[in-house]
Design a binder for these strands. Structure first.
Lengths: 205, 205
DNA sequence: TGACTTACTAAACACTGTTCAGTATCTTCG
DNA sequence: CGAAGATACTGAACAGTGTTTAGTAAGTCA
């Protein structure tokens, strides 16, 4: 079955080529302004070819999103080295925020864009990726609560609040709503750090 | 100049008719799926007519957004009756969250959607509306800090954090990202209340 | 070599935002 | 009143979109 294997491999390589091209264009132009024709042009194939490998634009987008999730998870490596759970929490906050500031397009694809992901039940892959990272956060928060280091008691609610607080800032930044309160994109990194520091100080016992 | 006045009035009425139709369609279909043709159909005019009253789709959208801001500001009426600033803060949180849950499409138009608002400098109207409400929040937070009722010292940073925390939850809810952490839309109202309560308890001294 | 399968594409369909030439109505002035 | 001019509106077109389909060319297998 060597030929069949090679065919399968070539098929996967073709998928990867499309995903890579799509990623480039998605990050350059954003989701809405990216057209299948542009992606096809980028990789020197016809638009119709893409539909032989992906059901539709959303389906292709989900694959790109999966790669983005991988990047963020990678960014969180080595957190367990910090033995203080509050330090872990702060460090996660720093890195999450930094990721949002440095890769707003990736962040947008993962947490803000509308279309797909509604079909979570159908797409196990994404669910798994996002859920996995959330569980890491839940673990850290649980340890903080167990050691009585933060002013919350319910791990689920606390985790949700912590995530939302950081996501809120990144989301407002990604969608340029912070101009209205006098924060320019350039000042975001320094404000972001103060933001996390203040938040940790506020919730810790 | 009676005729000129009448013309001016008719022009304004026509603008309002278009805005009203656009609002309906925007709320039904969302920003991206709304087409000028659909709006035109809804009010029985040709698509081209809309371009006599509004520069482009974004410009029309900004007018609709302005109406949405009015709704939210209206929702915040009577807050000064509560003499305890922390109660004011909690009540603002309740109402803001409820607005986001009850009118996710409006909320989307105001705080999540991408395209316009980037041109804040050009559009004084929106800036004014959003900034006004933010200033109300800043005022409440300042009083909380003055009375030493919350665990923060910098009003600007504190206000940003409080807004972001609530916005974060609403934004995740609007974009269906809470499914991934086991929260379904139906449970949002009750979770939302706990969320605000926990947040207030966490930040108060 | 002939039959079958696969990979790919040109062209079309139905949609989008936007523009423009042209019409039909209303206003103004002689 | 009637001609000239301004105003309000639209049909049709342009260039773009996601997606489908019929057809071609190449690779595989008997």
């Amino acid at each position: 079955m060597s030929i069949a294997e090679r065919k399968e491999r070539e098929k996967q390589e073709m998928k990867n080529l499309i995903i890579q091209g799509a990623m480039e264009v998605f990050l350059e132009l954003g989701y809405e302004k990216t057209s299948i024709r542009t992606i096809a042009d980028r990789i020197d194939y016809s638009p119709a070819t893409i539909y032989l490998y992906f059901k539709d634009k959303d389906s292709l987008f989900l694959e790109v999103q999966h790669v983005s999730f991988g990047l963020l998870i990678q960014e969180m490596a080595g957190l367990a080295d910090l033995d203080d759970p509050v330090s872990q929490l702060r460090e996660m906050g720093y890195r999450y925020l930094q990721f949002g500031i440095e890769h707003p397009e990736h962040y947008d694809l993962m947490f803000i864009i509308n279309d797909p992901l509604v079909c979570l039940m159908e797409d196990e892959k994404e669910w798994h990726n996002g859920h996995q990272m959330y569980q890491v956060l839940v673990g850290v928060v649980e340890r903080c609560i167990q050691c009585n280091l933060i002013r919350m008691t319910d791990p689920q609610l606390a985790t949700l609040m912590i995530w939302s607080t950081v996501h809120g800032l990144v989301a407002l930044h990604c969608r340029n709503r912070l101009w209205a309160v006098g924060i320019s994109p350039e000042t975001m990194p320094s404000i972001g750090k103060s933001y996390i520091d203040q938040f940790i100080e506020t919730i810790r016992t």
